[in-house]
Amino acid sequence: MTIDIALPRFAKIGAGTIGDLANVVTQLNIHRPVVVTDKYLADTGQAERLAKALQAAGFEVAVFSDTVPDPTVASLADGLELVRTHNADAIIGFGGGSPMDTAKALAVLSANGGDIAAYKAPSSYAGPTLPIVAIPTTAGSGSEATQFTVITDGDTDEKMLCPGLSFLPIAIVVDFELTLSMPARLTADTGVDALTHAIEAYVSRRASPFTDALALAAMNSISQHLRRAYADGTDREAREAMMLASTQAGMAFSNSSVALVHGMSRPIGGHFHVAHGLSNAMLLPAITRFSVDHAVTRYADCAKAMGVASEFAGDRVAATALVSELQQLCIDVEVPTPHTYGIDRSEWEAHLDTMATQALASGSPGNNPRIPTHEEIVDLYREIY
């Protein structure tokens, strides 16, 4: 069995590692980085502190803080202009999944020009790019460790998955202390997102022994610590465990794949502007139940790794326990349905055919243990509503 593995060149992981960023940048021979972040991190002063620390170390730094949730093609324009006028030699992504996605897109487009749509799946890009340094501030997307970015086409509301080695950060700084101020809702949504990454990486048709180990470790940790982090954001042990698990899950699915949950999640975000982690959480129990009969042993392994079934439980018993646990977890961290989130039923119904088409076109459902038809995807969307 041949396995292709792609990981960041190096990582600094642990409390206070944000203070080592200047050393990381120096080692990479970077001189003029652009920090890509969001309004929240800019308004709270965290982005400015990061930039000033780099400036004090002798770097010429510019900050782009106009990223938007679920970044669009149009939202990249001002960032590209700043990268060009600053004559940047690197991009530093600082934030959650949206700043990371923006940073990756800017790195590739600034080196090549063109339209990000040219890079969407099934293409895979491994050409010129600016180096990317990633600093996550949420424990969920795992984007710091993945070779993907997701950008929305504002004309069609399609969330375009853009894969390839050039989207992979070359260095990451993973400091769990950056997550201590995350509100409970964001903690839950990003935490279930990380769990989804781990489960899908493990049950994917493209899984390998390398990704299995990372995915199972992430599942084990998330099952022990997500509810704790949700209940008490100051729980440092839980925050640290969730941050590491998120990165492990990111490494797992980047080198395996995501599957049906993600394929169906992206259209929900694109059409109804639901945060990615939350739309994954809305889907995870139902899609696991839909898929479980086609990979009973793999899903049973997930249940055992999460501690919801004993090592001696039969596969069917364990897999059934996993579905029940995912349903209970979403109740415990108060995941809404599309209906309780506020999406109008008629609007939901009007988009089902388009969303199912976009889900299938992404390629992710083809990695699922049970490959759905268009009609089955429509039925699943109706079920979770």
Rank of each mutant, 00 (worst) to 15 (best):
N87F: 13
G127E: 05
I116C: 09
I91Y: 11
D78W: 01
S124H: 07
A139P: 09
G113I: 05
P136M: 11
P99K: 09
L80M: 14
G79S: 13
A118C: 01
T129D: 01
G95F: 02
Y125I: 04
D89V: 07
E144I: 06
H86L: 11
A145D: 13
A77I: 10
I132A: 01
A139V: 07
A126F: 03
V108G: 01
P122W: 01
D89C: 09
A145Q: 13
K120Y: 03
G114A: 08
G140N: 13
S124W: 04
T146W: 06
I92D: 12
G140W: 12
P136D: 12
L76D: 09
P122H: 05
L82T: 03
N87Q: 15
A107V: 03
K120F: 02
V150H: 00
Q147E: 03
V108D: 00
V83C: 13
G140L: 13
V150N: 00
L106F: 10
A103L: 08
I91S: 12
Y125Q: 02
E144S: 07
A88H: 09
K104R: 15
I92W: 11
L106T: 06
Q147S: 15
A118T: 05
S123L: 07
T102F: 02
L80I: 10
V133G: 07
D89L: 04
E81Y: 01
R84A: 15
L82N: 06
P99A: 13
K120R: 15
T138H: 07
T138E: 10
G113Q: 02
I135H: 02
E81C: 07
F94C: 06
N112S: 08
S98L: 09
P128V: 03
